[in-house]
Design a protein around this nucleic acid. Structure first.
Lengths: 334, 334
DNA sequence: CTGTTAGCGCGTTCAT
DNA sequence: ATGAACGCGCTAACAG
């Protein structure tokens, strides 16, 4: 490994002079600078950023903890973060937690030791010893997608309640009263929020949803398939299904197709979050959409501002609007 | 920040003793160990792994450079790598290069400075100044998916030629002679290999493919749509399309549907690489499949063996078999 | 079993 | 404009 000293020796200067040239913050005569740069070139010297981080007490490393890297929603968020962060000269370590609270703790412990400068977290549980440790050490953390009110952290998420409200309102406007809600695991704030939106739409229409038609599972294809199957076995069956996540919607499609049901002729289906190549799935799904890429960028803004200490002490909260995209998967109640 | 010295002071021992307890490699009396652990607990001490890396000359950091993080093929490879690597106590930095050679160079420069212990690369060009720099510094690099013969590096890839051969042979066996090949950019080894496989199948059948029906574009949905459209405008049109990548296949489906063509009644379609939720696309696609997850794990084995210096000097090359999954998208030529 | 010394590569501080 | 000395947090090598 070539060090700053090797360069210094070759250039006939002191190590510190090389350091100054590298970080070109200080004065250095043109000739010295040139000699040093030539020596660097000649030796193929690369500054050891480990030592630099060590001295600067900044690693330029951020981390992103997501619950499911296979979900396009999260890859899109990740791209938003990656793009914004590298513009600012930072790097991101991407960690997949599989919705497992212990994995979150494990990763955070490692990352803490690695002296990361900040973290973006999709929390897998409402509490976390390691997040508290981050706070103690003054390492900024941004909570993504979910509410985590007790911990008083900056947060960026989309308005799940509103999205669910829009979808449900739309289904109600088509005459559906028996709308199955196929949701994720109880306890997650997004799950609760989407339920809230569903209930609000019913309340505003002066209707009461049938509690039998509200299902909780996981945000997976398999869960969607299973819950949709169970929903259909209720009598009388629902005339519409609202799947509160993209994978749940896909699983529901599978279940419906296997029973030979036509969408939307026999039953209506709406989803939450878009998918790439959604145009290929027939019928094209009506969904609530979230600005995933934008969410990533906003989170970066927040984190950088925290690092620059340009933010007030109290936690900031950014809530991005959700929308409704009407396609072909919902029809009027027969 | 609490350091090893703070712990030592509180426990009434020397810093090195704390170090020994942390890395529990050395002897330490039960009582001392206990006192130290208590002090660690009390202070909430976390070892600074930056310093550790500094001393050990090992960061425990690996990097993975992929060309398109939104392609499920690559997320699957990434998971395979991530799983295998974390079993071994390493971490992975995931970098997305968007098939851009300059991005590869930029990332490698940063990673080199960060003293990563090794790299997995999907190269975006046949040559790379930074890969040479890696070699010079003795940092192991594994080339994924593509051939890069001049650089003499370890490599793991799937047998593209074989996969393409199997698909083409199958289509020929159904009676198709005019098979459009919709491929990625000329110059990539996977693109060349898939073309080779296509040609070999024709040659073995004593047939000559029509060169008009061989198309190059990018590995994207849009490219698939465009090239399929162009293929259909040829007279006489192809009776089958072989899309040499999953996104290309999806784009082709779109083009075919828009022209109202039924698959496989009007035209046959086969792809390369599976997609998640493939069961939802109608008709289910016949494809060549690659063991993506396995590829990731194999690459890790190779890299770890390189780090452990248990491998012969000359570059190792692992080629994984590809298969053919016959579903419903291909039918006999009318 | 435990402690002392020294040094990793770099940048800050203070001097020249 | 340039350099010497010191120290960041940790551990290897050598005492004791």
């Amino acid at each position: 490994m070539t060090t700053i000293r090797d360069v210094a020796r070759l250039a006939g200067v002191a190590p510190i002079t090389v350091s100054r040239v590298i970080n070109n913050n200080d004065y250095a005569s043109k000739e010295t600078r040139l000699r040093v740069l030539q020596a660097i070139e000649q030796l193929g010297y690369v500054p050891n950023s480990l030592s630099q981080s060590f001295r600067w007490k900044q690693t330029g490393l951020l981390a992103l903890l997501v619950t499911d890297i296979t979900n396009p929603f999260w890859t899109t968020v990740a791209r938003g973060i990656e793009d914004a962060v590298s513009d600012a000269g930072f790097n991101v370590i991407l960690c997949n937690t599989d919705e497992n609270a212990e994995e979150v703790e494990r990763y955070l412990r490692v990352l803490l030791a690695k002296q990361i400068d900040g973290v973006f977290i999709v929390p897998a549980s409402s509490d976390s010893e390691q997040i508290k440790a981050l706070k103690r050490q003054g390492i900024p953390a941004i909570v993504l997608d979910r509410r985590l009110p007790e911990l008083l952290l900056d947060a960026v998420r989309c308005d799940s309640e509103q999205g669910a409200y829009l979808v449900t309102q739309y289904l109600l406007s088509l005459g559906h009263h028996r709308i199955a809600l196929i949701n994720g695991p109880a306890g997650l704030s997004t799950v609760e929020d989407r339920l809230e939106g569903y209930l609000r739409a019913f309340a505003e229409a002066n209707l009461t949803p049938c509690s039998e038609l509200i299902f909780n599972g996981h945000f997976t294809f398999e869960s969607g398939e299973e819950l949709a199957t169970r929903a259909l076995s209720i009598t009388p069956p629902p005339t519409a299904i609202f799947a509160a996540n993209n994978f749940l919607a896909l699983g529901s499609i599978k279940a419906l197709r296997e029973r030979g049901m036509q969408i939307p002729a026999d039953i209506s289906l709406a989803g939450f979050d878009d998918l790439p190549f959604t145009q290929l799935i027939e019928p094209a799904l009506t969904v609530a959409t979230q600005p995933a890429y934008e969410m990533g960028r906003k989170a970066v803004e927040l984190l950088l501002a925290r690092l620059a200490k340009t933010l007030p002490d109290q936690p900031q909260e950014i809530i991005l609007p959700t929308g409704l995209i009407i396609r072909q998967s919902c029809g009027p109640k027969k």
